[in-house]
Simulated assay, not measured.
Amino acid sequence: MAEAAVKIADDVAEVLRSAVADGNVVRLPARQLDRKLYQATDKVLQALGGKWNTKAKGHVFANDPAEKLASALSSGRAVDELLTRKKSLQFFETPADLAGRLCDAIKIGPCDICLEPSAGHGRIVAAMRERFPFSVEAVEIDPDNCAVLREQGKVSVGRLHCADFLDWAVSEEAYRPNKIAMNPPFTRNQDIRHVRHAFNVLAPGGQLAAIVSEHGFIGQERETVEFREWLTDVRADVEIIPAGAFKESGTAIQTRMILIRKAR
Rank of each mutant, 00 (worst) to 15 (best):
Lys57Val: 00
Gly58Ala: 02
Asn63Pro: 12
Asp64Ser: 10
Glu67His: 09
Glu67Gly: 11
Leu69Asp: 01
Ala70Asn: 15
Ala72Val: 03
Ala72Gly: 06
Ala72Gln: 06
Ala72Tyr: 06
Ala72Cys: 09
Leu73Gly: 02
Leu73Tyr: 01
Leu73Met: 06
Ser74Asp: 14
Ser75Thr: 13
Arg77Met: 14
Ala78Trp: 04
Glu81Met: 14
Leu83Tyr: 07
Lys86Asn: 12
Lys87Pro: 03
Leu89His: 07
Gln90Ser: 10
Gln90Tyr: 03
Phe91Met: 01
Thr94Val: 09
Thr94Glu: 07
Ala96Arg: 14
Ala99Ile: 13
Ala99Val: 15
Gly100Cys: 04
Cys103Gly: 04
Ile106His: 10
Lys107Ile: 09
Gly109Pro: 05
Gly109Ile: 06
Gly109Cys: 07
Ile113Leu: 13
Ile113Arg: 15
Cys114Trp: 05
Glu116Met: 12
Pro117Arg: 06
Pro117Lys: 04
Ser118Tyr: 05
Ala119Trp: 05
Ala119Gln: 05
Ile124Trp: 02
Ile124Glu: 01
Arg129Ser: 09
Glu130Trp: 06
Phe132Tyr: 10
Pro133Asn: 01
Phe134Thr: 07
Ala138Ser: 06
Val139Ser: 05
Asp144Cys: 08
Asp144Trp: 12
Asn145Thr: 06
Cys146Leu: 05
Ala147Asp: 10
Ala147Ser: 09
Val148Gly: 12
Leu149Ser: 11
